[in-house]
């Protein structure tokens, strides 16, 4: 587990498990489980989005492409797409979370969003941060970008 912190506010502490892979900008985590991958919103992503109010995903059976939307999200601070870190086909949607998305705010790793059968997993994972060092390096750059844009609001 990698713990990232910023500023003095209590909620500016984000756990990022080092065995997961991450979409660098949309903060979607990927857990490789045999021949499938499970995806959800990482701790920083749910913090940046605020309270999740509405979530939609493509249906089971729909093909999705790396870097393209697999659904969309509306929250206190965000309205927009959730982009997939991998290509493949949606094989299961966590309907409980989709119908009550603030569950992600309560437990963002337990409350996954979709299960995907990947089509080019090795290639897709190659540029995603994974492991403590890579996650820390990625998040430090991400925090700096948020600071530069005055979006961190942690003091």
């Amino acid at each position: 587990m990698v713990l990232i912190t910023a500023g003095t506010k209590e909620d500016c502490r984000w756990d990022l498990p080092d065995d997961l892979y991450y979409h660098r900008k949309d903060h979607i985590w990927v857990s490789v489980e045999g021949s499938l991958v499970r995806m959800g919103l990482d701790a920083f992503g749910q913090w940046a989005a605020g309270t999740l109010a509405q979530m939609r995903t493509f249906p089971v059976g729909r093909a999705i492409r790396k870097g393209h939307a697999f659904g969309n999200l509306e929250s206190g601070k965000f309205i927009g797409p959730m982009r997939s870190p991998v290509s493949g086909k949606i094989v299961e949607v966590n309907t409980e979370v989709v119908s009550n998305p603030s569950m992600v705010n309560d437990d963002n790793y337990g409350n996954w969003i979709v299960l995907v059968e990947p089509s080019s997993l090795e290639e897709d994972l190659a540029d995603l941060p994974n492991g403590a060092a890579a996650i820390r390096e990625w998040m430090e750059a991400e925090l700096q970008e948020f600071r530069d844009k005055d979006l961190l609001n942690c003091d």
């Binding site: 601070k77 965000f78 309205i79 927009g80 005055d150």
Partner: peptide
């Protein structure tokens, strides 16, 4: 800039504009 907004028709800037 209260919200980051991105739909098929329009997206606001990634830098804060009206805060």
């Amino acid at each position: 800039s209260i919200k980051r907004y991105e739909t098929s028709a329009y997206q606001n800037s990634t830098r804060p504009f009206f805060i």
